[in-house]
Amino acid sequence: MQLIEAARQPILRIDARTKFALLFGVGISSLMFPPFWLEATTFVLMALLLALNRRVRTSAKFTVAFFIMLLLDWAVSLKVSGGFVALFFSLVRLGRLMLPIFMAGILLMKTTSVSEFMLSFDRMHLPNKLTIPLSVMFRFIPTISEEWHSIRDAMRFRGIGISVHSVLTKPMMTLEYTMVPLLMSTATIADELAAASLSRGLDTDTKRTCIEDVRLRSQDYLLILFSIIIALTGGML
């Protein structure tokens, strides 16, 4: 049993419900332009949580990005001023505010198994009719990104690759060339995926179990409380 248990255990286990709460809390607070100290606190917390869930590299990448953006912000505000700078300034700021949201998203997507996810829903007493589509969607996001990469390659062969230029000059056409193949290939995969999961008993009436311990621990309560507080106060501070 050691074999199975070893490498996969996170250092600090957080429940899927908490990860959801964090995503919403961080999302709402970030979009309400929090003061810098709260933004920094949120960022540090998210970076820590990622690292503690064995996503050290992701966490490091985000930290580097955060500091570069901070530096840019600082350097630009010192050297120049004017309308154009203000625009640039707010764009960088906006980008920086998005970082914790992405981190919360990654924490939820990459460190939660489907059965943890479903069992958490069960605990919240959500009906099967809601949890099954949600979990299929959850599973589907990495697939879409895989398809997206192939389609982008396919477009480059036809000289209709996506670039800043193509998006600005012919946005509708670029959208069409992306969406048509994406919808077609993902529709097939979604269909096969649903069939495969149903043939393995996804829509069971019996109470599901999970090899992970799904329960709320003290860290979960603290983090949920934190999410609620920042969501409520983010804009007011």
Binding site: I4, S115, I189, L193, A196, R200, T204, T209
Partner: peptide, 28 residues
């Protein structure tokens, strides 16, 4: 099934092996 791309429901292998049993509600 034939297409390995569309028959996995989990991102890691151990969770995938557990998936069917968990659906049946077997104890951990």
């Amino acid at each position: 099934f034939q297409n390995p791309r569309s028959q996995f429901f989990n991102v890691d292998t151990t969770a995938e092996l557990a998936f069917g049993c968990e659906n049946q509600g077997l104890p951990k």
